[in-house]
Simulated assay, not measured.
Amino acid sequence: MKGRFLVFEGIDGCGKSTQINQLINWLPTSGLMPQNSVLHVTREPGGTALGNALRELLLHPPKEILPGSLSELLLYSADRAQHVLEVITPALENGDWIISDRFSGSTIAYQGYGRELNLDLILQLEKIATQGLVPDITFWLDLSVEESLDRRKNTNHDRIESEGATFLGRVANGFDVLAKERNWTRVPANLPKEVVAKKIKESLSIKITGKRISSNG
């Protein structure tokens, strides 16, 4: 039996890490996963050794090797191609489950809508890098730009997070468009984290079994 591929998307500060950790603790005992299935947790960029090197170049580059917008897009695509080849596809073929912090939707939102690069080009690169792989379910943690900035006001920002409110507004709009086009599961991320976690668990249960099951624990 082929495994399941779950993805979390959203703007910076939306709570992806928190909700992924909630799901990690719940899924193995939820009854949704086959007993012999292993749960893998990964991220983009950085889900492979190559990806970790690319992550540093993308998010914390020295000033002398700062990537331009098109180079940035190609580096994200290279990270994804290696991620799909080395991590995601083998795990799915083994019947395992995967949770990924970001996937191709983030590239469309950040580089397409945020950087305003050509969307047709990005979609072509998406097909090449993913080899047609589509997540079973994508959770979009929907958070306002104002809330995102407020949550991150006392944190150190990487290169992308430092782009500011106008850029982030375009990204948020991109996620909104994608969520509607690709039938993502929208979860309001401004609610208490326990409420957000419950909504995610219930949505996943319905998606996998066709019915709602207990999300306690």
Rank of each mutant, 00 (worst) to 15 (best):
S215Q: 03
I20G: 01
R170G: 10
G174D: 12
Q124T: 02
D101R: 04
A197Y: 02
H40S: 01
E147N: 13
R4G: 01
V41T: 13
S148R: 06
K16Q: 08
L73I: 05
V187G: 12
K63Q: 15
R151H: 03
G164M: 07
A165P: 04
F8N: 06
K127L: 05
E202D: 07
G51T: 04
A109G: 10
Q131C: 15
C14D: 03
L191S: 07
S215C: 10
N36G: 06
F103N: 06
G13V: 05
N21W: 04
L133A: 12
D150P: 00
S203M: 04
T166R: 06
I128L: 14
L85M: 09
G105S: 12
T48D: 04
S215D: 08
E147G: 06
N21T: 02
A49L: 13
K153C: 06
P45Y: 11
L59A: 03
L149T: 02
S69A: 15
G3Q: 00
D12F: 03
V84G: 08
K199I: 06
T42R: 07
L57H: 11
L27S: 11
A179P: 07
S37A: 15
N156Q: 12
G132M: 13
K180T: 14
A129C: 13
G132W: 14
L27T: 08
P67C: 14
L121V: 12
E64P: 02
L6E: 02
Q124G: 00
R102L: 08
A129N: 13
A78S: 15
R4N: 01
K201D: 02
L59W: 00
T138F: 09
N190G: 09
L149R: 05
S71E: 14
E56A: 08
F103E: 06
V41M: 03
F175H: 15
T107P: 04
M1T: 04
